[in-house]
């Protein structure tokens, strides 16, 4: 099935960089997100999730 992808893109110069680039974008996006989320302190997270409940 991936044959189809390869041949359609062959006309672009240096196309082989694209899959690598995509993988890197994805890898760093989700790793970054993981670090972002798990570096929160428990108290901060609790405080944030309480925002809608203390509004009136």
């Amino acid at each position: 099935m991936f044959e189809q992808i390869k041949h359609n893109m062959e006309t672009i110069d240096g196309v082989s960089i694209y899959p690598i680039l995509s993988l890197l974008i994805f890898f760093f996006f989700f790793v970054g997100l993981g670090i972002w989320v798990f570096s929160y302190k428990k108290e901060t997270i609790d405080e944030l999730s309480e925002i809608p409940l203390k509004d009136n």
Binding site: W36, Y40, D46, E50, P52, L53
Partner: peptide, 9 residues
């Protein structure tokens, strides 16, 4: 509160 605020992010 929402089940997991981390998950929501």
């Amino acid at each position: 509160p929402v089940y997991s605020y981390r998950l929501s992010i």
